[in-house]
Design a protein around this nucleic acid. Sequence first.
RNA 1: GUGGCCAUAGUUCAAUGGUAGAACACUGGGUUGUGGUCCCAGACACGAGGGUUCAAUUCCCUCUGGCCACCCCA
Length: 456
Amino acid sequence: MSRKINKKVIEKDLKKEKDFRVRRSEKYSRLRGMKDILFDEYKYWNLVLKKATDLSATYSFSHIDTPILEKLDLFERSTGKETDIVSKEMYNFIDKSGDRVALRPEATPGLVRAYVEHGMFNLPQPVKMFWLGPLFRHEKPQSGRLRQFNQYDLEMFGDPSPVADAQLILVAYNFFSELQIDVQIQINSIGCKECRTEYGKKLLDYYKERGKRAKLCVDCKKRITKNPMRLLDCKEPSCQSVREDAPQIVDFLCDGCREHFIKVLEYLDELDIPYNLNPFLVRGLDYYNRTVFEIFTVGEEEADADKRQSALGGGGRYDELVELMGGRPTPACGFGIGLERVINKIKEKNIPIKEDKENFIFLAQLGDQGKRKAFALFEELRKAGFKIRQAFTKDSLKTQLEEADRAGAKYTLILGQKELLDGTIILRDMESGTQEVVDYKKIIFELNKRIEGNKN
RNA sequence: GUGGCCAUAGUUCAAUGGUAGAACACUGGGUUGUGGUCCCAGACACGAGGGUUCAAUUCCCUCUGGCCACCCCA
């Protein structure tokens, strides 16, 4: 072994020793596709959460929560065993009691389960649910695509009428427009089982016509046998040219379904909600029937307009699901909105967030005596209803003023040895930098004079 | 799951086959009792493992992670 190699080894050892001293343990990192929401990020969440809460209340949707963990079977049966979500994206495992369980990959099944389990068909119908929470899908992460993400969901049970569909779309639309995000709603009707079987046949006939198959991409060739409806979804130019003259499901709707769809559109027209009829919109989950819709942003900066944008939200009607899950036949519809994606848009567009600046007081102290007295004064002022902050763990006045400044205090009270002796306290205006000595006993009176109307 | 690009302080970015620098942020000081400006100082990084080499943060491979596209969706 040469001297040089020895040197290298020694250097590495030294480095490791240093690392050991500095860290003493392995640094942990998040799981892939999981995110921490840090302090500054919360202003966005507060904004979005408040909008969701307010809107839901206005339209009489009641807050409901369901467990994050459910039986695996619930999703297999409702979402569909063959869907991507269930077949390859679910976090599932067998728990200590041997149950097959899953982290919920979407909200609707749990809500349907709750509706059935708690006998909500005995409540006045429709039952309108407002739901908010984390969902889990084991996908390859990308921007706007996390393995744990949050969704705002609204569901309406027990109302078969087109008004229900329209109201849901309205709330979703309001949610976005009030957050200043311009959206476009893509809407379609995929009819009921009967309409769909009929249509499936026609579609296959069309695609099997001479010469068409050759133009399709590899994926679409597979789709012909596996999932013909998905042929409509492809965005390969050559596939799109083939699909141009394809039969559209709207033309094959039964009378009931057609009438329902027309009514929904009429309501949307009435409300001036912009929508796009998209005969090619097909949703991935098994339980949808009749109305389906997806919500996309309309960008001003759409140089790459034909690039597939990820949806901000989507939903539709699922009239068969409650019965399938063991309940009484109950018509229902709902939607989900991806909150991380909404927040991304808000950030992208630099939409200003107004944070209500509160005029608060900072209480600074000096010396042991001062600190002790300030401790008590803080409580006194807090109980008197003032918004007040402190940094009692800091000793230097400079540091305390820095902190007051950073936090945006309107006034700082300074209590030190000298003031203690004189029975006074210093009141400093943080903006002008002027300060006055006031009688300690009159401090509440003086503060009231200055920050009237800014109390808790 | 498939393909492409990428990985350097807390953050945003440099430089380099001979082990790294700035800005902002952070800590301390100039100011022993006074913030915002200024000055000074300090702490902190080459994602992990292997290979080539006298020597790798730099070149190669694997892994991990990030971004983007597909797939799918929110």
